[in-house]
Amino acid sequence: MQKTVNHRAWLLVLPVVLSVAFSAILPLMTVVNYSVQDILGPGQRVWVGNEWFIDTVRNPDLHAAFWRNLLFSFQVLLIQIPLGIAVALALPAKGWQASLSLVLIALPLLIPWNVVGTIWQIFGRADIGLGGYFVNNILGLSYNYTLEPRDAWITVLVMDVWHWTPLVALLCYAGLRAIPDPFYQAARIDGARLWSIFWYIQLPKLRGVLLIAVLLRFMDSFMIYTEPFVVTGGGPGTATTFLSIYLSNIAIGQFDLGNGSAFSLIYFLLIQILCFVFYTAILRAGRK
């Protein structure tokens, strides 16, 4: 049978191409244009070459924000991945208990990010917040996220764990349910302990979903903005000034368009690289 070639299907892609052009490509081109000029006002601009880029890559505050963000992402992974696996293992496998616990666990994922920030901002306050009051007055520890850099860091970290561990848990739960029963039967015949079942059956079978979980959580935490912005505003000092908060301080706070766009492009490059790694890893995990 002869296949007919019909290129009209390309027309169906046209709306997406147009909307992406207007919402992403034209603005991106503008950012590139801004990054090589000093924009003084409408119609007034001076070519500066790569000066903004030099400023940006040699800016110690930006280096600090980068390492701070990297440390944050690393801690996020270190806590959320094992915790997510543990939660998934502890969840019931069947029946109404399973549905109920899945819904309960997924609740934090349904809350808008700025609302999560507001919840924790109030929860952590020493005077009216349940969490802050408990730590200060019942445990007797001094805790104030608006004054102490360490407390602000812990608050943002715990908030992220609360918000996003459910995602890891749900992914792992799906992965666990996909393991065929004969694996467990064979393990029972061999007299395997729980730990061996986990180490030799469950964990290897979770490899694919864990890969996705690690990359998703890394990307998200590397671009985190809303929650720390609402809770701490990047403070106290620069304790929780992550990359995107720093960027918006430059571009919107100081209206420093040149530095802001040079920084955006470098940030975009980093995210590009992460996306490519993410994409490649998922493709390869799917092929095996």
Partner: peptide
């Protein structure tokens, strides 16, 4: 310079780059 693309602040090098 002016025209509808003035807001994009085009320069010759960046135009060549995107070209």
């Amino acid at each position: 310079m002016g025209g509808p693309l003035e807001w994009m602040a085009w320069t010759t090098p960046t135009a060549l780059f995107f070209g």
